[in-house]
Amino acid sequence: MILLAEANAAAPAVSDYFGSAIVEYLPYFLRGMLMTINISFWAAIVSFAIGLVVAVLRVTPSGGLKVVATAFTEFFRNTPLYVQVLVFYFGLPKLGIQLKFSFFGIEVGDSFSAGTLALGLYTGAYVAEAIRSGLLAIPRGQGEAARSLGLSVLQTLRLVVLPQAIRLVLPPLGNLYSAMLKNSALLSSIGVMDLMFQADFVNNRTFKTFEVFTSVVFFYLMLTLPMGWFVHWLEKKYNPLRAKTLRLQGARI
């Protein structure tokens, strides 16, 4: 009898877990997820663009720009992301750089653009290193063959060397973008209303700390896992012959 009574007492707690706090605040979490996707999307674009340029500059023989590119990677890789986010958010306005603007009629706030830029540049430094290692792994003869056919330096990069280098480093790039998505949670600290921000908000309202943050884990997984699958799919799509190619090239060199 006593055992049964205890079991009954536990039951409402479980239904309460799923029932009230999370379900009631689900729209907040969903809005947060959308924002997390939004920041990650823009940061991914920034980081890929900057990563490509920096990687290419770092492998060119010429001096000046190479130094700048190296300084960029070293700076962003050797300081904490959190500090960079704060510097961009508080520092840039002090330098007179205004990051508030309107994009397709949507007001983009300081925190969003500063945060996305910081996250994009930070990730970009790692992306640059990944792509650089890919570039260095492409046999010299590839560029020479392209050049000897009359392709310009830029065409050689764009059509021959970079496509191979990027295919080669898809797995590490996948890891970097998964890390970037998780790192985006830091932007909640400057007021970006992402998943983490909404979780804090719901927690402050409901005090159901454990429930809130375990669900947040789940929501993040719903973002990172599909992204991992997507990268895996890309690898399969573009690289069915990759392992074989490398083995043979290695054997011949």
Binding site: E144, S148, L149, G150, V160, I253
Partner: peptide, 18 residues
């Protein structure tokens, strides 16, 4: 222009694997 006019065949073939 010269490179287009002078075809080069290498010991290692150097086909574009992608």
């Amino acid at each position: 222009r010269i490179r287009g006019e002078t075809g080069m065949v290498f010991q290692q073939f150097n086909l574009f694997p992608h």
